[in-house]
Amino acid sequence: MLEIKNLHARIGDNEILKGLDLTIPLGEVHAIMGPNGSGKSTLSYVLSGKPDYEVTEGSATFDGQDILALAPEERAAAGVFLAFQYPIEIPGVANMTFLRAAMNAQRKTRGEEEISTPDFLKLVRAKAPDLGITQDMLRRGVNVGFSGGEKKRNEILQMALLQPRLCILDETDSGLDIDALKVVAQGVNALRSPDRAMLVITHYQRLLDHIVPDVVHVMHKGRIVRSGGAELALELEESGYAAYGQNAA
């Protein structure tokens, strides 16, 4: 279970999270919606340990463990995964090499053995085609020359291989065409499981047609201001965030 209590975080002098509370039990998918700049990406960065973000108050635990006390790579090994809003390019490092390095690094941190080459290849072959990741994309540099949609699908491939226990998806739907949206949604749904919690950040109801959330939260100015069922997303699609004192962006 992810439990966030009264979380305050700042970057420089700018306080962005201002007392955020959020609980996601294992097995559930929660969506966060909210206007631009409300702090959604910030929340994902704070949970995954991006430097420069300073937590000034509050707590965040996952299965009782204080994740804010861990180094970013330790959080990853503990099962925290962030599908980035803007995935990063690493020229010259083959996607395959990166995937394997990541898997092995996490295994090492957990005191497990490295994955063997055949096992690794088997895994990749089992997951990549469903996500429309081609051999060529596996050989190319990480995200280098990938289209916006390809980058997002590549994030989901990483998630599928690393099998994290807390999945945070930051606008994974943005930039996806209709077919890719379905592919990504299928990838995410395949990972839904009783011992996994998911946090899906999105602006659009259409993603939630495919990944039906257990709970929808509205984030505004660094706090969760409203929570409801899947129908809340539909309502927001109708009325926007005007009720929260926000003009259309």
């Binding site: 790579e73 990853a76 990063i88 996490q106």
Partner: peptide, 30 residues
């Protein structure tokens, strides 16, 4: 080496040193 590249690697579980070595190895691949 950008902060963002490093963090991307750390988020996937690599240590600082592994991340730097990986990025540099990519840089010199040719």
């Amino acid at each position: 080496i950008s902060e963002d590249q490093l963090f991307y690697c750390l988020q996937r579980g690599l240590s600082q040193e592994e991340a730097v070595a990986l990025i540099v190895n990519g840089f010199v691949r040719d």
